[in-house]
Design a protein around this nucleic acid. Sequence first.
DNA 1: CTTTAATATTTTAGGTATGAAATTTCAAGC
DNA 2: GCTTGAAATTTCATACCTAAAATATTAAAG
Lengths: 157, 157
Amino acid sequence: MITKPAIRLACEPLSKERLRLWLKLLKTSGLIEDELRRRLRAEFGSTLPRFDVMSALSRSPDGLKMSEISKMLRVSNGNITGIVDKLSEEGLALRVAVPGDRRAHLVRLTKKGVRAFDELAKAHEVWVDEILSGLNADDIDGMIRRLDHLNHSISED
Amino acid sequence: MITKPAIRLACEPLSKERLRLWLKLLKTSGLIEDELRRRLRAEFGSTLPRFDVMSALSRSPDGLKMSEISKMLRVSNGNITGIVDKLSEEGLALRVAVPGDRRAHLVRLTKKGVRAFDELAKAHEVWVDEILSGLNADDIDGMIRRLDHLNHSISED
DNA sequence: CTTTAATATTTTAGGTATGAAATTTCAAGC
DNA sequence: GCTTGAAATTTCATACCTAAAATATTAAAG
């Protein structure tokens, strides 16, 4: 009787499988991202980075420092400057001075910004639901569990 | 006897779960991408987009048209122009005229480009293996299967 | 006090990305 | 042959993004 091997004799294939996994992960998230970007542009004339910044601000009504935003979104500090500038110009966000510290500013959504984001967020959730509609509850659960595992193993190394 | 419900009474939680999944997917691929970008820069003074273009060219020794590259990598045509310009300046790629069609050019890696990419690709595979080392064969297999499913369901809609 | 180091942000230089308009060339149809 | 439309690429304007340098402020150590 032939049994399936309990251990792998060579590690080489596993490294190839990891590479295959990474390429698929990259492709999938790129496809979804492109589609979201397209709709955000077509239906709201907005962009993903702006949505991300507004989303972060929305979760912190008391405001966030520039560095807090860039840390949360894992993008460079200098980048956030430009995006917040734009949001401010359009009256969606504003910089508030911090009493005890003249270096820092708190960025906050304006009322107009909150309204705009609520609309965006509602549409965004519907879009994601549509795009991922091919997945049932088990699929979703399985992927979330594995992504958590992967995420954890990456972050702690 | 109480049986588990065959259908969900409310769809709302599933849409939230899909959103959760997307955010995790985005975060994970971002973390991996950032790490690869960092190493590419630190160890080779190169970038991910250049690596991607070289990788595509490497798989097609007979050359690729600009539009073929942009289709493969799902980036805009105008973008590829700049990257190929840079690769050409550095002697890693070159444009070859197409005999029957004076509109198109075939882009091809030079010998130097092939050597450079081979080195990059070898390092890249090791990096990915390291970064994903927390996953065993079953994890990898499970994720690949689900990503294929998702990918398929997105592309065909 | 004053030097020093750390923190918070902006600026700068350069590469990457998009969509749209412009250019050149090709392929038919008349 | 000439026009029309499609195809391949580049150019353009604009936005994003990074790392690194510059600026300004705070805090702490001597």
